[in-house]
């Protein structure tokens, strides 16, 4: 009996401990961690979206894990810097790469009657109930960074990166290189995420359409640098020829480049293998600038200001002019990359 009680006690402590630790690490801050949110919300009438009595707009921010990549770190930091009390918000943040956990937290936030639910979904599907609940409760949903599959009427605005366009830009750039044959190592991100689907889609289409575009291998490294390195090393070990590495984020491109370096295969502008990455890391810009990589598709992580403007407009009674707002993005290669752009977009 004593043992059981002790065990139960420790289990409780473990739970509390993990919550506290997560809060401390700033990684996972579940909505239930902020019991004062409903209290201050009490005078709010969610239907008309008036700010709470203390003048603060309550927002629930659901994002992915900031440690997933440099891109996400910048994205999360920008959101946290924008939605502060000084800026007129009472914000609750939650970070998790697991869509199921995100959905559970979103429902909790809707029950807590937040005015706005800001959402960067980990997967594009499975959000129907959340969106319906939000509509029923009068919570306005704004998507940022990533899209989900739902009717446009289910959310008020989406400030996102146009992932299919990013993929298209990259594939067009690759085509413009005019290689005789494209033997591609395609390293994919987390399967089912918006970024992976968009960046894979364009390349898949091209490889299917053109006879001289081939996949040497197509594998997911789950955004992980070490896995990407292993994948490329295994292709090298098996003696297959390749001349393009299309990695769906910069970290994985870096891992791929490390595998090439270890085998003395040249890459970059004057090298044998073209290296392509995505996102906005400053160090990756520098790789492109130095000619060690050939291309980086910019994925702009800084949507916080745009989201902020939309919310302020909505509270003032103005609907956003466009439902889906794409953040300005472009592809960069070594030739026309001025230092000014590195400073402007690098994060």
């Amino acid at each position: 009996m004593k043992m059981k009680k002790l065990l139960a006690l420790m289990l409780c402590l473990a739970l509390v401990g993990s919550l506290a630790a997560c809060g401390g690490g700033g990684e996972e801050t579940p909505a239930t961690d902020a019991p004062d949110t409903p209290a201050t919300d009490a005078p709010t009438t969610p239907a008309d979206d008036a700010p709470a009595a203390d003048g603060l707009i309550t927002v629930g921010v659901i994002n992915n894990d900031p440690n997933e990549s440099g891109y996400r770190t910048a994205n999360d930091a920008a959101m946290r810097a924008t939605f502060t009390e000084a800026n007129g918000y009472k914000a609750t943040f939650y970070n998790n790469n697991d869509a199921a956990q995100q959905i559970a937290t979103a429902q909790q936030m809707i029950q807590d009657e937040v005015d706005f639910l800001l959402l960067s979904p980990a997967s594009t599907t499975g959000w129907d109930t959340v969106l319906q609940d939000a509509q029923a409760a009068g919570t306005q949903v704004i998507l940022f960074d990533r899209m989900l599959e739902a009717d446009e009427s289910m959310y008020v605005a989406a400030v996102v990166s146009d992932m299919p366009a990013e993929g298209k830009t990259a594939v067009d750039w690759l085509e413009a290189q005019g290689l005789d044959e494209y033997n591609i190592i395609h390293i994919q991100g987390h399967m089912g995420s918006d970024a992976q689907l968009g960046r894979t889609g364009a390349l898949d289409e091209k490889v299917a359409a053109e006879a001289n575009w081939n996949y040497v291998t197509q594998q997911t490294a789950d955004w992980d640098e070490a896995t990407a390195k292993t994948i490329v090393q295994s292709v090298i070990d098996s003696g297959k020829d390749f001349n393009v590495i299309y990695a769906e984020n910069n970290g994985m491109a870096r891992g791929a480049a490390a595998a090439l370096d270890a085998n003395g295969i040249t890459h970059g502008v004057d090298g044998d293998v073209i290296i392509m990455g995505f996102d906005s890391d400053k160090w990756a810009f520098e790789e492109v600038l130095a000619g060690r990589w050939n291309y980086m598709g910019l994925c702009n992580p800084l949507q916080a200001d745009t989201v902020d403007a939309i919310i302020k407009d909505l509270v003032a009674g103005n609907e956003p002019a466009e439902k889906i707002i794409y953040t300005p993005e472009q592809g960069f290669d070594a030739a026309p990359l001025p230092q000014a752009d590195v400073d402007k977009y690098g994060t």
Binding site: A14, G17, A21, C22, P66
Partner: peptide, 23 residues
């Protein structure tokens, strides 16, 4: 398994905290 579950859950956050969430 239960005892180490604590660090399993918290460890990566602690790791991030050590470097101020930078990579």
């Amino acid at each position: 398994m239960v005892a180490t579950l604590i660090l399993y859950t918290a460890g990566r956050s602690i790791a991030a905290w050590i470097n101020n969430n930078e990579l």
